[in-house]
Each structure stands twice: as structure tokens, then as C-alpha cells.
Design a protein around this nucleic acid. Structure first.
Lengths: 351, 351
DNA sequence: CTGTTAGCGCATTCAA
DNA sequence: TTGAATGCGCTAACAG
């Protein structure tokens, strides 16, 4: 083993083993055209020196970097963290590592982060675009020297494949379910209405309400600073208060649950609740909360799989196939628990 | 902008700008000894070509890789994900990116993952050791050519600094609090008793019980496969049932909450509850759950700061200072809510 | 089977 | 202020 300081090189290994660098290199890389005895000598030298291939040199030489760039809004958020972990597993299976940059959903930071990421010459990119209509980002991706796959949100005009969830249909079905329960005044509650996924869910909600001839009741004024209980109290005190709430993201759902508890508003008798995105204690709360469940891990996994598929389709050759594929759309699931008014827990409904 | 295929090199930039590579290089790196006009020409060429420095070449040349290796048990777990995000922020401030490998707490996978990580020649390493007594890992770290900082758990005999939380003291204080409430039969409930952090918490619990002359009641048979409600029911039906439960990790806490609801056991009147590690809905549940709260983000942040401190202390020089520092120990906080029997929410107690 | 050699892209000499 | 030359560690192509 080495003492400290710098790393031993292949040349040192070769010298210690009494062979040429080329031979040592071949020995390291699988050992084609290397005699058993030479192989042993090299192996031994590697052991003694604690040799470790210098990745930078391999990359420079034109080989794979064995890294995948991951550009996501956040890594502490359970949703993206799970996607990342799933993608990481796939990467690992391909002998690659994830190299991560976070955008905080800031379109500005996104391009520059992408730039930083690209300097590291990853073999491919996994991106969650802050804004699917970001022309600048789309152009970067189109001109990218490596394959790119987006997930959770598409990137229009980028020509890259993406893996998304059917937010529109899921929201529509969820709303329809609420309507089937007989609720007439369904309030749709969410923050961040500019986010693509939220917009899609909003569309789904509106579509369902419209289909049923019901008025859309939307409040997107929710954010981290406002007091949710105050907001809700306002709605409840109105002349025609809502009889159900559809929350568009799990933090909103928890916030509403908390506020309703404070206000002593009983769920679902006074106000029914259905949320988008599952959360750990949704089944434990009283009443348990009905939700739309996204195939979170599948998103990350599928995106990574697609990426490596593209990577391998032209392995070696610089140009990779740039298939302008339609987005892969994963189905969501409506998990019916008690908060929407259902009596039997665990009734499920695939969307 | 480039069309696709490969990246433009500095040579191409230099040619387009009508200067030598050396000059172009200087222009790119801050521009010392470059005339204003030359600078402009190079800048323009860079724009046209969409040039982007090749990181691999720089690294090979001996420069910083601008990456920090992160070796953690999981990245989807909220705890580690938050640490990672905090560390990532610090890295970003130092113009670096995180390159991630997950170990799943498998000591075997750990060494090999570390190996893979090191091939990428990161400037430093942030590690959460699966087992603080892993001699092999300690040796790897000792011989590492780059600085290493562990967090959440120490790595004995590695000679590297670490940032941890005072699990022992926090658990002791939490148990003491339960004892002050008058509970005599406090059951300590957890899975993964082999983990360092859990062991420390277990020690703290035992210490407190011993100090109070009370018998330690420990059940570490909890795991993902067992039915928690069955386990709890067993304890409750015993001749001398527990009057309080101290759970050692948040998944155990939620599991117990869920089981208690199922069993219709009221908290805290029939059974008090206090958990280690906060979780999102702990304050929302009825009753709200008292917990030991760890400074999660500080862990990751502090660890990264320490790493860059070491990195910068000898910038340029290969050997870095290998201070055999004592671990940095961060304080935990006891957040008193209702489940322990306290009447006033939000009463807090620093540990 | 094996040793030698030529770059990969860059920063850093050293001359000019 | 500049351009040309060198070498970082490695692999692939070639000659033995």
C-alpha cells in the first residue's frame, strides 16, 4: 500500500513487474493477450503499490468517464432523492457514478449548473428541467455532445427523451373520484402554480370539474410563509364553503391536514381531502389520507435505463442516436383511504 | 455553438482567434499577461465554438478535480439526503461538485465503492462509515491520498476528522425526561442494533435507567418484516407492561405510532412515547410526538467545511495536513411535544 | 505474447 | 506580451 501523497502510475506498476506499460495496461483491462505469469506479476505489483487507474487519463484518452450528470431541483426532497437513488443503482450496474448538481428550480442557476456539470465530461445527463419551455436550456441540450434524458418534466424542443408521469390524467381522475362522492365545491389548493407538474394537475382538476358542470375553485396562494389555517378558515367562513379539498403536492397536503386539526374541522365529514403525492404517514393519520401515488423510483430508474440504452446503442462512436422519442409516460395510482370519504381502506384504483 | 459530436478544444479556439494555445490558455484562466484585444478575440472564439474546458485534461495536468466524493449508506433517506444537500451547497461555494456512491450500510460494498470513487480522483472524501471499527476501511482512509472527513459516525484509527452528534447524551437526557415524568417501565425499541448511532443511543438509555435504578427494557427485534403491532401487543399483555416507549430511530417511531393506533392504545395516558429523530408530521399527529432532534444539515455542512479547510490549508502542495483532530460533536435538542406526557407544546430543551 | 510510441487537452515552462 | 514545446497517465496501434 502507498504511504500517502500521490498515486502510483501504471508506469511504476510496469517497472515493478518488469514489463512494459502496454502490457501492464492490458493486464489491468481484462488481460487479453497476457500470459498467466505476466498477469500474476502485474497483479502483485498492483497490490504492492496500491495502484488505481487514473480516471482522468482514461477519459482524456477518449474513454468513457463512467459518470452520469444529475441536474435536479433538490436532493433533500424525498421525491428527487428517491429518483436519484434509483438512477444511481442503474448507473452502478453500468459501472458508473452519479455526479450531482442542484438547481433549486431556478432557471438561471440551471444553465450555469449544467455548464459546470458538462466541464466534468459525464457520459450522459439526467435532468429535471425547472421550466419545460426554457428555450435556452433546450438549445443547450440539443447541442449537447452527450445523450440527455429528462424526467418528471419534459423539455420541449430539446429533442431528447423524457420519462414523466401522467399528472393531468391522474389529477382528473382524482377529482372525478371526489365528484363521484357527491362533493360539489371542491377546492384545489396548491403552491408553486408555475411548475409544470402543478400546472398539469391543475389542468386535470379543471377538466374534471368542467366535465361535471361544476365550478373550479382554485387557490394557489399557498406558500411557506402564509398561515394555512388562516387561509382555510377564510374559505370555510365564506358564503359557499368548499366541501372537499384537492391538494396538488404533498407538502400542501400535510399543511392542510395540520391546519384542519387546528381548526377542529373534521375530515371527511365537514371537509373531504385528497392529495397529490403519497407521504410516509398518510396511512397512519386519522383519518388516513387518500392520495395520488406516483411511481417515484420508476421515474429515476427508467430515465437512467433509457440513458444507458442510448449510450450503448453507439458505444465507441462519438455520435449517439438522437431519437426524438415521445415521452415515456408512467401511470399513477389513486390510493383510496379515508379522507376522501371512502369507507374501505386500501381500495385501490389504477389510473 | 457546436453542432453535436465532440467538444471543441483549446487548440481550435486558439486557431480561430489566431493566437497560440498558450495564450488562449492564459486568456481562459483569468487572463494574466494577455492584451485586451487578444482577450477579446479569444472570448469571441470561445463563444462561437461553445468551448468548455476539458476537466479531465486539467486534472491530469495536476490541477484540482473540483469534485468531492460522497460515500453514504443511502441517498433517499431524508437524513443523508439532507446532509448531502448541505454538503453540496458548501462544495458548490468552492466551485466543486459532489460525486456520489451509496453503500446501503454494507461494509463489503463500502470498500469497493470507495475504490470506485477514488478512481475518479476527487479532491476529498466525505464518508459515513457503516462500521466505525472497520479496520480495513480505516486503513484505506489512513493511506488515502486526499483528505477525508467522516460524519454521523466516526471511523476509529483512521486519523481523519469527523463530525458527529452526541447520540449518547441525547438518548440519556431523553430517557431522563421520561423518568422525570414518573414512568418506571420504559421500553426501548429499535431495529438495527448493530449501527453505531443506535448503539450509542442504547448506551444512553441504559445509563439513564441505571442512574435511576430502573430496569432496562430493550427490544431490538423490530425490523421491516415483523408486525410491530404484534410485538407491541405482546409487551402490553405481559405481567408488567411498559408505561413508556423510547424509539431509537424515526422509522421505528412512526411504526409504533401506527401500531398503537391500530391497537387503540392511547398516548400518553396508557403508553407514553418519545422518539429519536424528528419527522415531518411529528408535530401534526395526535398527539404530537416528542422527539430528539438532530442538527441534520449542520452535520453535512460542517463536514464539508472541515474538508475544504483541510484542502485549502495546503493548496497546491500534495501532502495535506492530517490533523488527528478530536471529533466535532454537535448538540442535539429535545423537542417536547405531547406524546411524552408534557402539557405545553413547543417546550424545548437544549441538550 | 510483448515492448515502444503517439497522442488525448491542457497549463506551464522557456525563449523570443 | 506571446508562441512553441513539454509532460501529466493512459490506451491503442504497431512492430518485434
Amino acid at each position: 500500500m502507498r504511504k500517502g501523497s500521490s498515486h502510483p502510475t501504471l508506469l511504476e506498476v510496469a517497472r515493478l513487474a518488469g514489463v512494459g506499460v502496454g502490457t501492464a495496461s492490458r493486464a489491468v483491462n481484462g488481460g487479453t493477450n497476457v500470459s498467466a505469469s505476466t498477469m500474476r506479476k502485474v497483479k502483485s505489483a498492483i497490490q504492492q503499490l496500491g495502484y488505481m487507474p487514473n480516471h482522468a487519463a482514461r477519459v482524456l484518452k477518449g474513454g468513457r468517464a463512467k459518470t452520469v450528470g444529475l441536474l435536479v431541483p433538490s436532493i433533500s426532497d424525498y421525491f428527487f432523492a428517491s429518483c436519484a437513488e434509483a438512477a444511481g443503482r442503474i448507473a452502478k450496474a453500468h459501472d458508473s457514478l452519479l455526479i450531482v448538481a442542484v438547481t433549486m428550480n431556478l432557471s438561471g442557476a440551471e444553465i450555469s449548473s449544467l455548464d459546470v456539470l458538462m466541464r466534468h465530461r459525464p457520459d450522459g445527463l439526467l435532468i429535471v428541467p425547472s421550466d419545460p419551455d426554457n428555450k435556452e436550456l433546450a438549445r443547450c441540450v440539443r447541442n449537447s455532445a452527450v445523450p440527455v434524458v429528462t424526467f418528471d418534466r419534459p423539455l420541449f424542443g430539446s429533442g431528447c427523451s423524457s420519462v414523466i408521469t401522467d399528472n393531468f390524467e391522474a389529477a382528473r381522475n382524482a377529482t372525478l373520484h371526489l365528484i363521484e362522492h357527491g362533493y360539489k365545491r371542491i377546492l384545489c389548493f396548491s403552491s408553486e402554480p408555475d411548475l409544470y407538474t402543478i400546472r398539469e394537475r391543475l389542468r386535470g382538476y379543471c377538466q374534471a370539474m368542467e366535465e361535471a358542470g361544476l365550478p373550479s375553485l382554485i387557490d394557489t396562494s399557498l406558500d411557506d410563509t402564509t398561515l394555512v389555517s388562516r387561509l382555510l378558515a377564510g374559505h370555510l367562513k365564506g358564503r359557499r364553503p368548499p366541501d372537499a379539498v384537492f391538494t396538488l403536492k404533498n407538502s400542501s397536503t400535510s399543511a392542510v391536514v395540520q391546519a384542519l386539526h387546528q381548526l377542529r374541522v373534521s375530515i371527511p365529514s365537514r371537509l373531504a381531502l385528497l392529495g397529490f403525492d403519497d407521504f410516509e404517514l398518510a396511512a397512519t393519520l386519522h383519518p388516513s389520507i387518500s392520495v395520488v401515488q406516483q411511481p417515484i423510483e420508476d421515474l429515476g430508474r427508467k430515465a437512467a435505463e433509457l440513458l444507458f440504452e442510448q449510450l450503448e446503442s453507439h458505444h465507441g462512436i462519438k455520435g449517439f442516436r438522437k431519437m426524438k422519442r415521445e415521452p415515456v409516460v408512467l401511470a399513477n395510482r389513486l390510493v383510496l383511504r379515508r379522507s376522501c370519504g371512502c369507507k374501505e381502506e386500501l381500495a385501490r384504483k389504477d389510473l
